[in-house]
Simulated scan of single mutants.
Amino acid sequence: MAGRFRPLVLITVTTGLLLATGCGGASLGTGDDSKQTGPVKIGLLVPQSGTYKALGDDMKAGFELYVRQHGGRLGGREVQIVIADEGETADSGKAAAEKLVKQDRVLAVSGVVSSATVNGVKDLFETSRIPLVGSNASPTTLTGTKYIWRTSYVNDEPGKALGKHVAERAGGPVFLVAAGYQAGKDEIEGFKSTFLPAGGKIAGEEVYTPFPGTKNFQPYLSQIENSGAKAVFCFYAGGAAVDFVKQYRDFGLAGRIPLYAPGFLTEGGVLKGQGDAADGVLTALNYSADLDNAANRKFAPAYRAAHGTDPTTYAMASWDAAQVLDKAIKAAGGNVTPETVNAAISTVGDIDSPRGTWRFNSGGTPIRPWYLREVKLGANTLAGDLGRLGG
């Protein structure tokens, strides 16, 4: 059943292989054997069921790719990865996290798709002093933590990255519409924070559509058509992104009123579901699979070879999370414990990422570049540089 806690699966990562195993052996988690030179145990908390399974699969694939590319090791230690099903609710995510921390006694955890999950597990990681190097969820409300890091973004940043750009190009008022939950509200507020100071005007009041129940967007599309808007900024992901984009085209708005959004609107599997309805959609994201830099030339072709598709931001951020842990475990030296690794994370410095070089800010999220992308012939293509955020 979607959302229920699923059993954990323990896998040992060795060079080029993922071998199933039934126990952790003498792996190095939070026990007293932490100074040994044996394997380290890392928890991967990602959806393996429910609405966000596709995102979880991408995150798992990105993390595992980095480990394979580094000989099955992080920081010179063999790695055992414990995969926990986050599911699709805060309760299922919290139960999975507690299992990783309290029963499996992992050294560190990565993953986490949902903002509700990360809010629900904040106290667990802080009180247990186990580092969480998250690779997706990062609500604006997550502040003041010492053991929670994110290799992704803060929820309002894609909107912030687009605001000034849209204000300069819309040529009139912009209609704002988003899914009615925390991430949608964060994105709208982020967009307004740079759009309004740049002289942008809003067409009426922003609209929040009921989440997750909205399937028919026709009433909202009618509002857009009647508003006099010259452009639209929206936030949708997953199945809602497919529905919104296809209905936007079918209603006759595509090609007449430009559609802007955080990159999740057209990222990964949803783009296939949207088909040619997505052509021309403009998005802001911290990654584009066609970026030309040394790290992406190593990452993107390897990901395509393994999975037959372009890597997503979810896979990229998880690849980076593995890189952060690689550097931190190495820096901890012969005394590898959750606390020494957490301390080392704060000193890892520049991360040579497929998105471009970045480093953690004081809040534990990246200072990184943002990119404008446009869907052309069914693919997200790099269309410009929107500057750096996170400082």
Rank of each mutant, 00 (worst) to 15 (best):
G87K: 06
D320A: 10
P39E: 10
A332K: 11
P212V: 12
S353G: 03
N361D: 10
D91P: 05
D290P: 15
L17S: 14
F217Y: 12
T365Y: 15
P39D: 14
L132K: 02
G87M: 02
N119H: 00
F264S: 07
D32A: 14
G199Q: 05
G363D: 15
Y248C: 10
R105K: 15
G333D: 15
A84S: 07
A167G: 03
A137T: 13
A289E: 07
Q247A: 08
Y181G: 12
Y52D: 02
G71W: 06
L8I: 12
G180E: 13
G356M: 06
S115W: 05
T141M: 09
Q182G: 12
G171N: 04
E187V: 10
V341G: 10
G390V: 10
G93V: 07
A26K: 15
A203W: 00
S222R: 10
L8H: 01
W149T: 02
G204K: 00
P311Y: 05
G252H: 02
C234L: 08
K185P: 02
D33I: 05
L382R: 09
G171F: 00
K146H: 06
L285V: 00
V281Y: 00
T340S: 15
F264R: 02
L107G: 01
P366I: 06
T145D: 08
P338G: 06
P212E: 12
T37E: 15
V101Y: 10
A306N: 09
A183I: 13
S193I: 00
T209E: 03
V101L: 14
R249P: 07
G31E: 14
W319D: 11
G308M: 06
A97E: 11
G239N: 11
S49F: 09
H307K: 07
G184A: 08
L100E: 07
R77Y: 10
L221F: 09
F235V: 04
R169C: 05
V166K: 02
